[in-house]
Design a protein around this nucleic acid. Structure first.
Lengths: 259, 259
DNA sequence: CGCGAGATTGAAGGAATTCAAGCCTTGTGG
DNA sequence: CCACAAGGCTTGAATTCCTTCAATCTCGCG
């Protein structure tokens, strides 16, 4: 009977098991997630109600309008929030990376579709107990407010990209964003010669930037042709001169500077 | 010497005086602003540190990068958050209406330019005392989180408009948004035949929607020609059939439904 | 009245989309 | 082990929609 379960599912089960026994103290996103400011006792309360959930690449996490009975933190992987119009046009409105929070306390219905772009591990809490926790533990509420305000700032930057930048600038903006996030993750800064993988495919980039897939492809080719970037594979980017890329993005001067 | 002070300034002084003596209990935005959930004692603490400030139409409130030593609630008027690129392109990233909150606790520097679009009255708090208050009074923090999450949702809707809608749909979307806000303010719903004033001029609409002023003008004319809207003046709109307008906006069916 | 800011309209040009074809890469079955 | 199918990506040509540049209009106000 064990033979009936495909290998990949076994691996998922094993990974689930692994995470089930994982303690917050050793969590890779402990210092940036919604629990970042928690004291030991608060963390204990969170730990008591948490559970891990895993999604494979491409799998939907929730659909717009669905009841969301869990909220949670991205532990690993990439997920996309998007909003679809009924004629098929879609716009990505959020890109969830490790430590980002998914779901909204105080609202039952999902306001957007959420899909796992790569394999995703989510540290989940049932919504109701979590809401109680937000009410009663100020450090969770404070951190959540801080994260939401940061998200709002990021989304507003993104609006400038969507509303006012050319296709070439959009691509360059996306690349600098990813490069910077990558650098932060490595606790370094974006430097000349840095290499990184694109977290999403051309399709998702088009959704992110409000472009068609063809335009995305053409502009990437154009930046490559002009030696602003080097493509080691379709997904692997090398940036010979970061200031040059930043300039192509149309952002204010500073270039290498970041948080 | 009194003769040296222009009449308009006198009126401002008088209005300031009026507001200085105003009590929270009679505040028009009391039930929707950041203080909405406050108990009597919490309100007293807020009242102790608040003061009113007034800005004339067109006046800058803060510049990007400036130190912001006050935060506050919009009591009256309209203000625009916008982000300018150095070559002159600008994108509006927020439209502040009465009860909206301006400023971010926990950050000193303004992240965007803010400008009064109409005459604005702001209920201000010095940032530091307010931050202490956020730490110590859970109802302020909770309401602020709720408002920020609402703002995030609104901004994400707006991203779909910027990224995926045509110029005509953008204008129709803007009109439905304003119509709905107007209706909510009147504690009614958007109905056929409703009339409202546009809070901003064509220039600001272009900034809001990521268009040029000419395209805004053309699309308004086009909607007028097709009897989707009637213009009683350049700023006064009548919507004969609200469902029709909503359909032009490309939003999902429902039409008249709103919060 | 006439000025000027805000708004409208027209014509030409350009950037991104659409439609269509073809190219890599990966994986699967013969 | 090779062939070939399929998905992701690239490229080309034609078209569309929005912008740009320029001229004209409207309306409130000194």
């Amino acid at each position: 009977m064990a033979g009936n379960i495909p290998l990949t599912n076994w691996l998922i089960l094993m990974k689930d098991l692994l995470f089930d026994t994982q303690e917050c103290a050793s969590c890779p996103i402990r210092h940036r997630a919604v629990c970042a400011r928690c004291e030991a006792d608060e963390l204990k309360r969170l730990e008591a109600i948490k559970f891990y959930r895993r999604f494979e690449a491409g799998q939907p996490i929730v659909w717009k309008g669905d009841a969301m009975d869990v909220v949670g933190s991205m532990v690993d992987g990439v997920a996309a929030l998007s909003h679809g119009m009924e004629d098929g046009r879609t716009q990505m409105v959020g890109l969830l990376l490790p430590s980002d929070f998914l779901g909204r306390p105080g609202r039952r219905e999902a306001t957007h579709d959420v899909r796992a772009v790569t394999a995703v591990t989510l540290c989940c809490f049932r919504r109701r107990p979590f809401e109680d926790l937000v009410e009663s533990t100020p450090h969770v509420a404070q951190r959540l407010l801080e994260m939401t305000l940061d998200e709002l700032d990021a989304v507003r930057e993104w609006m400038v990209v969507l509303g006012r930048k050319t296709a070439r600038e959009k691509i360059a903006s996306f690349l600098t964003t990813i490069a910077r996030r990558e650098a932060v993750l490595r606790r370094a800064r974006a430097v000349n010669g840095m290499r990184f993988d694109l977290p999403i495919n051309r399709d998702a980039m088009a959704d992110y930037l409000g472009l068609t897939i063809e335009t995305v492809s053409r502009q990437i080719s154009s930046l490559k042709r002009d030696n602003v970037i080097v493509l080691e594979s379709k997904r692997t980017v090398v940036v010979p001169d970061f200031a040059r890329l930043a300039a192509e993005a149309g952002d204010d001067s500073d270039g290498g500077l970041l948080c």
